[in-house]
Write a protein that binds this DNA or RNA. Structure first.
Lengths: 147, 147
DNA sequence: ATCGCAATTGCATCCAGTCGCAATTATATG
DNA sequence: CATATAATTGCGACTGGATGCAATTGCGAT
């Protein structure tokens, strides 16, 4: 748990609330939504306000301890020393597949060369159709509602 | 304005409310947020409810008349026959640069080959640092707030 | 130990977006 | 033209997240 050191070094106070939030993210195996983290923290310390959690998460992202990204409209958080990867989200069945970071290296290079833009493609969410849904959907009519 | 035909062909009713929403998107030169569209529509027909606008926008996206994407946490809309492109958003100065669609063709191919996933990379939003900010920020401390 | 001040918290409130529901309206049919 | 039916609308309530403010708290200097 090197991030407590990181925080101390930056002169950021390690309050009980913040410790709980860090614990929640560390103990989790999967991605957590902000809501997950809030209930996890409040289970042990009910008076912690959700705005405190949101602010802390933003702080942790700025200090590089946590990565923030978006999955189907919700912000999710994951610990920084998990490996990076991207998410492929099927717009039909909502299945989520992870894919390697390396796929985008060439894009990062092109962006740097052509636009002088240094992108941080650590966690993209890409929507499309997964293999099954793509094959199943011959006479598909996008006018219809999706589940 | 081919989308009115598209809608008629799909048996979707062209109500006055929907016509106003389509007009707003057509008349706009830049990307519109949902909020922009709502106030634009309500200027001419004040009783139109925001939920109607949101539902219509979702419908227009499903029928392919309008594209929806996300720019700095807000959903934006643009007319389908604008050319596609991606957005590079500088996380320092919030400047937005457009970049060509072609950059991601190789990624689309790899996703299809390796994951059987057919991605629709019509409008990505990529955050990172623009050229100016990258050069300016030598002793940059991410702990500090950004404007 | 304690004092002073900046950092942090909880609270209240706001904002964008979603959803269920009941009332309304467009269209197809007789 | 009347009417039945399904699509659409407006409304209100709710959700996730952000923010300004006043009260509290952690911590460095003494």
């Amino acid at each position: 748990m090197s991030c407590t050191n990181t925080l101390k070094r930056k002169g950021i106070r390690l309050t009980p609330q913040r410790r709980l939030i860090l614990d929640a993210i560390h103990d989790a195996d999967a991605h957590l939504t902000a809501e997950d983290i809030i209930s996890c923290v409040q289970a042990r310390m009910p008076e912690v306000h959700r705005s405190t959690v949101y602010r802390t998460l933003e702080l942790l992202e700025r200090t590089g301890c946590v990565y923030q990204s978006e999955l189907s409209g919700r912000i999710i958080y994951h610990h920084a020393d998990e490996g990076h990867h991207h998410h492929l989200v099927c717009s039909e069945c909502a299945r989520v597949v992870e894919c390697e970071e390396s796929l985008f290296e060439s894009v990062e290079r092109s962006l740097a060369e052509r636009h002088g833009f240094s992108a941080t493609l650590r966690h993209l969410v890409i929507s499309g159709l997964c293999a099954e849904c793509a094959s199943r959907k011959e006479g598909y009519d996008p006018t219809q509602e999706r589940r």
